[in-house]
């Protein structure tokens, strides 16, 4: 009988302690959430967002179509067509597309690019109404 009552009292005490914790958070702790569309949280500068191709100072593409990025990609989502420009006898890409529907933002392509011209952006919201919208070509990818 005594142990029964002690058990009840002990149980009630543990419940009260739990309620103290929630009350503490209710009264004193600030919200940790972010009201998303109104305030945006800053991502780390090395954030692995969508890919972009850099250009040099004159606005020319740096990429020389070496295909390393497309070969290293685990999901084969980079594709390009390469030609030799007769004007300056350099290899260039005539098309360069990344299918972001397949990209898993692993960053291997960026790391392996010998010219350091492929970079991640810091945007984390990239949406489209259909799958085609996720396939970006040179017009969107190349940052001038």
């Amino acid at each position: 009988m005594i142990s029964y009552i002690i058990k009840i009292l002990k149980g009630s005490w543990s419940l009260l302690v739990g309620m103290k914790v929630t009350l503490k958070y209710f009264l004193f702790e600030k919200a940790v959430t972010v009201r998303y569309p109104y305030e945006k949280r800053k991502v780390a500068p090395i954030w692995r967002g969508t890919l972009r191709q850099l250009c040099d100072d004159k606005g020319e593409e740096i990429c020389d179509g070496c295909q390393i990025c497309s070969r290293v990609c685990p999901v084969q989502c980079i594709s390009m067509e390469v030609f030799k420009d007769p004007a300056d006898n350099k290899r260039k890409t005539s098309s360069y597309t990344v299918d972001f529907g397949r990209c898993m933002y692993c960053g291997l392509c960026v790391e392996s690019c010998p010219k350091k011209c492929l970079v991640h952006t810091t945007d984390y919201a990239f949406v489209s109404f259909d799958r085609e919208g996720l396939v970006l070509g040179k017009d969107k990818l190349v940052k001038r």
Binding site: T22, Y25, F26, A31, T33, R35
Partner: peptide, 13 residues
Amino acid sequence: KVSAHIQSRLGPM
């Protein structure tokens, strides 16, 4: 609101 503030959230805003 009560649940949100207990859980360090804001609830509907």
